[in-house]
């Protein structure tokens, strides 16, 4: 059986990525839903999945000084390129915020006074929700969002999808264009970019399209809340046409989408007969039926 992996990303945050992912995940047959926005995972709030499995994710290390061994020689201060080690009140100290975890200080310390401690507070969870299976990661605050946790989530998603004969994998991606986004879209079948008709929305979509093109992936654009500024929506469509990006559809602003979220439901579950729900169904068909 062939999986179809669809990533939903946006560049700009708050364009409606997760609400649209939730709608896609509750349209018809059972799916595997993976929340790859590990920095701000939200879909579990709507779907309240069961906790069947959990795994610790080690996100690098940080250096700590053992002051019973430290002679305050300051050699490590000169070696650190992240400006993380300095003398504070004439005592060598390492800033946890600035430490990048490269381990060099620990290696060169003549007294072996620097230890590396792994960051092991991030987690990956998997379980069932009302329309299939779900996998999501939660990065512990302040840690490097390296995309490795995203990779772990995606591998788990594929594994569970296979075990349960789930054909469709929906990946709700993080905002931005950095490492976790690249990890979310690498090797997927289709990328859906959700944008909104604002200056920021247009800018960020353009940067997102560039990153998607680097990976030669088929991309679809959804203009959400298009009626906030129809001129800007037209401008976005023109730009997409010139750059040969398929417009999957436009969705109007609708308070019911927020009301659905408050009720812990997707818009499809909350208001199946609403115009938006019908539109989302059409958009989904357009995205899934287009041949690669």
């Amino acid at each position: 059986m062939n999986n179809m992996e669809i990533a939903i990303i946006s560049g700009k945050g708050g364009t409606g990525k997760s609400s649209i992912s939730a709608a896609f995940a509750t349209l018809n047959g059972e799916v595997l839903l993976a929340d790859c926005d590990v920095d701000a995972a939200n879909l579990y709030l709507l779907f309240n999945p069961s906790h069947e499995e959990e795994e610790v994710f080690i996100a690098g290390e940080k250096a700590f000084i053992d002051y019973s061994l430290c002679t305050n020689c300051g050699i490590c201060v000169d070696y650190c390129r992240f400006g993380a080690i300095s003398f504070i009140n004439e005592k060598v100290s390492i800033s946890e915020i600035l430490c990048d975890g490269c381990r060099l200080c620990s290696r060169i310390c003549p007294e072996n006074a620097i230890n590396m401690v792994p960051n092991d507070k991030s987690m990956m969870y998997s379980g069932s929700f009302r329309n299939g299976k779900m996998v999501y990661g939660r990065l512990s605050p302040g840690e490097e969002n390296s995309g490795k946790l995203v990779n772990m989530v995606r591998e788990k998603a594929k594994e569970i999808a296979k075990e349960n004969n789930l054909e469709t994998i929906i990946l709700d991606g993080p905002p931005g264009i950095g490492c976790p986004v690249i990890s979310t879209i690498t090797g997927v079948d289709k990328v859906v970019i959700v944008t909104e008709p604002t200056i920021s929305g247009l800018h960020d979509m353009q940067r997102t399209v560039e990153i998607v093109k680097k990976f030669s992936l088929p991309a679809f654009v959804i203009i959400n809340k298009y009626d906030l500024n129809s001129d800007m929506s037209d401008q976005i469509e023109d730009w997409c046409r010139q750059n040969k990006i398929t417009i999957a559809g436009r969705l109007p602003f609708n308070k019911q989408v927020v009301e659905a979220m408050v009720m812990g439901k997707s818009i499809i579950e909350f208001a199946p007969d609403n115009e938006i729900s019908k539109n989302i169904t059409i958009i989904w068909d357009k995205i899934t039926k287009q041949k690669k």
């Binding site: 945050g13 920095d39 701000a40 915020i97 600035l98 990065l139 605050p141 302040g142 840690e143 490097e144 969002n145 993080p174 905002p175 931005g176 950095g178």
Partner: peptide, 13 residues
Amino acid sequence: PPGTSCPFIQTVA
């Protein structure tokens, strides 16, 4: 930047 990971921390620090 959004989120609570490294880029956020570097800014708010």
